[in-house]
């Protein structure tokens, strides 16, 4: 039996009396394109932050390719690349190229290889012309592509994307979808959170719908729609959220 890319077992995270994630169990297989959906505050970002160690689980375990995300965090981090929802970029004194080179360095990539990898990603993501620019000089779309390039600098096996197309215009969204499909075709496991159900329907092989920290539905988008007699994932999503609320 294959080791899943990500295995979440009974994850619970509370902040005081607020339950952000409630007994979440989920497996994402290697090479899968998986979407985590849910309204604001459903626990999506908490879940992915727990995978990369930015959130300490109150209870439960997370395994990444069989490695414990807490105990083996350093080995897990080598395997995972994450693009955060907020466009977090170390731009106070570094230019675009340096941001990628330094990020490669944190992952133990020697300087010469780091420079080559940074240049390759700058070309691939259409940022070569902006290599000497400061982050503040980039457009929203360029920042988003830089965040994605940064997540790929160490060639991770598992890619986690938190709302990768939030705020993107239609053209940019299509470009990013194409990039993500290419990465998936190269064999990467992708875990994506999104508010755009069309995005999940188009890209994801399976989706999990979270509501108030609990997994309320799981399966391929078309199967979920069929089972509930709906035409689209959006209708399934709305029906589930409304029934949970009532």
């Amino acid at each position: 039996m294959h080791t899943p890319a990500i295995s979440i077992e009974h994850l619970r995270k509370t902040y005081g009396t607020l339950v952000a994630v409630d007994d979440l169990s989920l497996e994402i297989q290697r090479g899968e394109f998986f979407g985590l959906l849910g309204p604001n505050g459903a626990g999506k970002t908490t879940t992915i932050n727990a995978i990369v160690g930015l959130v300490k689980p109150t209870r439960g375990h997370i395994l990444v390719l069989g490695l414990d995300a807490v105990r083996d965090y350093r080995r897990v981090h080598r395997l995972v690349g994450i693009a955060f929802q907020e466009l977090i970029l170390d731009g106070s004194f570094l230019n675009v190229r340096e941001i990628l080179i330094y990020q490669a360095g944190y992952f133990g990539i020697p300087p010469r290889r780091a420079r080559a990898k940074a240049d390759e990603l700058l070309e691939r993501f259409g940022l070569w012309e902006k290599r000497s620019a400061k982050v503040q000089e980039l457009s929203g779309g360029q920042k988003r592509r830089l965040v994605l390039a940064k997540a790929l600098i160490h060639d991770p096996e598992v890619l986690i994307l938190d709302e990768p197309t939030a705020g993107a215009d239609v053209e940019m969204r299509l470009q990013l979808w194409e990039m993500l499909q290419d990465l998936h075709a190269q064999g990467k496991t992708i875990l994506l959170t999104t508010h755009y159900l069309e995005e999940a329907e188009r890209l994801c092989q399976r989706v999990g719908i979270l509501h108030q920290g609990r997994l309320v539905s799981l399966g391929p988008p078309e199967q979920l729609a069929r089972e509930r007699g709906q035409a689209h994932l959006e209708d399934v999503f709305l029906e589930l959220i409304r029934s949970e609320r009532s």
């Binding site: 160690g53 930015l54 106070s92």
Partner: peptide, 18 residues
């Protein structure tokens, strides 16, 4: 504090650095 404020402390925390 700057890295915490702007969030780029995450660059180090999600890397294999101990």
């Amino acid at each position: 504090f700057q890295a915490r404020w702007y969030g780029n402390i995450a660059d180090f925390l999600v890397s294999p650095l101990s």
